[in-house]
């Protein structure tokens, strides 16, 4: 049975880009551990050799023609953000 430590919660939270308050860590650790316990019931079954199923459909990807169909909607799309300037979306400095 897996149990998730506070450190693991912190690591997952970082990968998930979620700020988790220190006082919430152990709550999440318990809850996530419980979910993992539920999930690990899967281990009661040997699935060796079973083809994984990624999708309910056994069909293939459909393809679209190479046509430009989307007009410039910058004005409308940027009305969704309060942080734009000179046609750009603004964020805190990106350091490469």
């Amino acid at each position: 049975m897996s149990s998730i430590s506070n450190e693991t919660v912190e690591k997952i939270a970082r990968l998930s880009a979620l700020a988790i308050a220190p006082e919430e860590l152990s709550m999440y650790a318990t809850q996530l551990s419980n979910i993992l316990t539920l999930v690990e019931q899967m281990n009661t079954l040997d699935t060796t050799g079973i083809e994984p199923m990624a999708h309910p459909q056994a069909t293939n990807q459909r393809l679209r023609n190479d046509c430009v169909t989307e007009p410039d909607e910058r004005k409308e799309l940027q009305s969704l953000s309060a942080f734009t300037e000179a046609g750009l979306y603004l964020v805190n400095q990106v350091i490469e």
């Binding site: 939270a13 998930s16 880009a17 979620l18 700020a19 996530l32 993992l36 805190n92």
Partner: peptide, 20 residues
Amino acid sequence: LYRRSRAEGFGSEVKRRIMI
């Protein structure tokens, strides 16, 4: 920006499922 926007924007069940 990322971590706080998402932490404030999502409720706890959503956060649980994202983390799992």
